[in-house]
Design a protein around this nucleic acid. Sequence first.
DNA 1: CAAGATTACGACAGGCGTAACTATT
DNA 2: AATAGTTACGCCTGTCGTAATCTTG
Lengths: 202, 202
Amino acid sequence: MEFRQMEYFLAVVENKGINGAAAALGVAQPTVSQALRGLERELGVRLFHRIGRGMVLSAAGRSLVGPSRQVLRDVAAAAEQLTASDGAIVGRLDIMAFPALTSGTIVDLIAEFCRRYPQARVRFSELEREDNLESLIRDGHCEFAVAHLPLEAGEGLEIVELGEQEYRLVYPAGTELPEGAGTSFGNAGHSHGIRSSRGSDG
Amino acid sequence: MEFRQMEYFLAVVENKGINGAAAALGVAQPTVSQALRGLERELGVRLFHRIGRGMVLSAAGRSLVGPSRQVLRDVAAAAEQLTASDGAIVGRLDIMAFPALTSGTIVDLIAEFCRRYPQARVRFSELEREDNLESLIRDGHCEFAVAHLPLEAGEGLEIVELGEQEYRLVYPAGTELPEGAGTSFGNAGHSHGIRSSRGSDG
DNA sequence: CAAGATTACGACAGGCGTAACTATT
DNA sequence: AATAGTTACGCCTGTCGTAATCTTG
């Protein structure tokens, strides 16, 4: 799956056809057609139904639109990030946190940091459940991480308790809760097929 | 900026060197070296400082690590999405919302949807400030969008008020608020260089 | 001398455009 | 006939590996 392929794919979706997509991209029609068929061949899935002289998204194609948009947006963000880094940046702070913890004491920390270093850039990104906190910080992915207790303190890591946070389990009325749900609701949201992180699914 | 370049770049970062990266990627060292230099040339920025026989991330390179990881993760999510779409999916729901609105009545909506269609997949993604709600829904980016009032109702769009939400402005102690801050705090967070969306900066 | 990064170079694949073809309205 | 998508073919860029070169500990 190549970068350009997603770009062309989205162009076809947005312009409702290869012709328009090619015009929008500034390339010839066969180029888009080839790229699209190459992508379909590579994935082994038909992304569009060829109906008459038109193209309409298939189920698989539909499921690829969102993630592809995500990719292109993040690529743009990466490029922007880079041009921005040319400016006069005096400091830099990267913080990672589980989505549920993005509101709370952490904002006070950021505010304090901004007060002390007005020129600095602060970047805030989401933790995934499988991320390893110790390696994240060690490898320089971020300076701080916000996570739930308990977590084992790796060597050379400082852990400070920021506070408590109330949790609420949301579930459809009439749903029977599994045993022990009151104390350990684990990934209840996940079991409903819901996740809040971008582009993922359950 | 190509896809493979990011992959190689991250491999170099994670393996602390071109040699290890090449081994991890299963390619020859010159391949990685070329790809990396090509990326640097294309971006016009030096991503690594060559110190002795080692490579250490430059400031620009550092700023590219997070976004690149984001891209690769999203690509993986896209691929996964596609293989998953082969399965027996009975329904699909895409919802978009501003990050600040991701908790609230919306979860009840999702819960209700999941109760009715247990087989369905729900995807939840973030709105950007510049997104146009009407075109988002019209172009099939999502089925629902959650946004602040006021918003103009496009033709063929239904708008339902979900509820109210309390806002809090967080700022460093001692900061003088600009005039009218009590009623229109606009993008105050932004003015502090803080944004919560992944990979962006202020 | 050993380890690691870069350069040189030839082989190959892949993307591109032009042009010709097919099919649907 | 016109519009839209696909196939055929040739050009050219760029990626890869092998081998040689440079640099540092």
